[in-house]
Design a protein around this nucleic acid. Sequence first.
DNA 1: CTCGTTTTGTTCTCGCGTTCACAAACTCCT
DNA 2: AGGAGTTTGTGAACGCGAGAACAAAACGAG
Lengths: 224, 224
Amino acid sequence: MSARTPDTARDIPEATVARLPVYLRALIVLADAGTATCSSEELAAAAGVNSAKLRKDLSYLGSYGTRGVGYDVEYLRYQIAREIGVTQDWPVVIVGIGNLGHALANYSGFRSRGFRVVALLDADPARHEEVVAGLDVRSFDDLEGIVEEHDVSIGVIATPAVAAQDVADRMVAAGITSVLNFAPIVLSVPEGVDVRKVDLSIELQILAYHEQRKAVTARAEDAS
Amino acid sequence: MSARTPDTARDIPEATVARLPVYLRALIVLADAGTATCSSEELAAAAGVNSAKLRKDLSYLGSYGTRGVGYDVEYLRYQIAREIGVTQDWPVVIVGIGNLGHALANYSGFRSRGFRVVALLDADPARHEEVVAGLDVRSFDDLEGIVEEHDVSIGVIATPAVAAQDVADRMVAAGITSVLNFAPIVLSVPEGVDVRKVDLSIELQILAYHEQRKAVTARAEDAS
DNA sequence: CTCGTTTTGTTCTCGCGTTCACAAACTCCT
DNA sequence: AGGAGTTTGTGAACGCGAGAACAAAACGAG
Ligand SMILES: NC(=O)c1ccc[n+]([C@@H]2O[C@H](COP(=O)([O-])OP(=O)(O)OC[C@H]3O[C@@H](n4cnc5c(N)ncnc54)[C@H](O)[C@@H]3O)[C@@H](O)[C@H]2O)c1
Ligand SMILES: NC(=O)c1ccc[n+]([C@@H]2O[C@H](COP(=O)([O-])OP(=O)(O)OC[C@H]3O[C@@H](n4cnc5c(N)ncnc54)[C@H](O)[C@@H]3O)[C@@H](O)[C@H]2O)c1
């Protein structure tokens, strides 16, 4: 059992995993600009991080650089893409084709970054007339069939908050094991299912907090 | 100078700041359900965190609970809202009224959470005919006037990546000091300006990484 | 071949955030 | 009033991640 884990399964710190996509993006920009090689300093600047942190992050993947030279842009790009798992496309379903769902369905960036939207689902029959980004909006009841047919493991929830937990439950029951949730609610899912949330109001509120502090401290300095 | 900082300006850890909006949301749900009082255990469950963490987080704000009883829902709700700075509305401008900009403009949740969209700006003159969510889409050149008129300090960027840095520069020059960026690019801004980014592709890629690992480890277990 | 230069990979230290555990404080019941 | 039961607020231990600093490796010049 615990003799040795296979070399594909060394575990990368979560903080590093979150930055790998940023490095990947920066490498694609460099590759498109025709750069063949880059130093950790250059890549770190492009990714907006400290170069020591970048090197440490990359060292978890393996030893893909050359001392005195730097990194081969194309080679490193492939290695990171492979590590993240975006060398092939992941099929994705989007549930809730309202304001946000439309925007997501129309977004071309997913395709170029390793994802393929295979279905758009909505509970409202009035939506089923629609075609968005070349895909029919289908009934939410088609979920199970679509998940099985396309072997979908990633689902996106863009429904109102009240519906989100139900949608998540149905997704999990259908076999989806990764969820990206836009509804402002804490989802509860069984062990083994990953949930990431994107809450735009929270982002704004964090900005508001710092903004308020700027105002307070500015006033305090004026008074002195 | 450094005798003592005023009691409004104690500094709250960044990790705590990011969770306060979640607690606030949970408290609003509890208040709407008619709950007058709650324990740290209940509130923590509603917010999806550990109760010890919740108590420690709240302790940075002050001592707003009652031992043996719990927290007064309405009171704590107000205190958190005050600490975050969302007891009054913050004016916000959105730049880039494409797919995503439309969704954001139409989102009613911002209003109820302390934000008021005061203007929608786009560089494309073809967009200026439009009215979205009751607001005219205006020229990007109106930015400076709007920022001054409404005293805007928070800007949202929903333009393509190539335009994002230019937009950010113009925003900063106009006096905006907090930016929420949806474009997949690292923005560089002067000291004193806060930037938060939301990158949906990165979120999906993080899910993909873990999904891939699940597949790998499952295969490894099968083989044993 | 050797030396100086460049840049990676890694070790070490420090600080932050999480979690445990418990004393202090409050309520309620007798 | 006093004791039993609850629940907060916080001190202390621990683990992870950030950054500095440096040794090892590659390269090029002479
Ligand atoms: N629009 C934004 O910019 C924005 C910003 C932040 C958060 N959000 C959140 O994202 C979610 C979607 O926002 P929106 O503005 O697109 O809302 P919306 O009302 O425009 O769209 C929601 C869609 O979900 C569908 N739906 C409802 N119940 C469903 C169910 N049980 N199964 C399947 N589909 C169902 C509806 O028919 C509708 O088409 C909400 O939770 C919202 O809070 C949106
Ligand atoms: N649509 C999505 O779901 C989605 C998802 C993830 C990321 N994003 C990112 O969000 C951004 C917007 O996406 P979108 O799908 O809405 O794109 P879009 O092309 O539909 O809209 C972009 C809008 O910005 C305007 N614009 C361009 N240059 C401008 C400038 N200099 N000043 C002001 N306005 C300008 C355009 O006229 C257009 O209306 C992109 O950076 C995209 O990568 C979008």
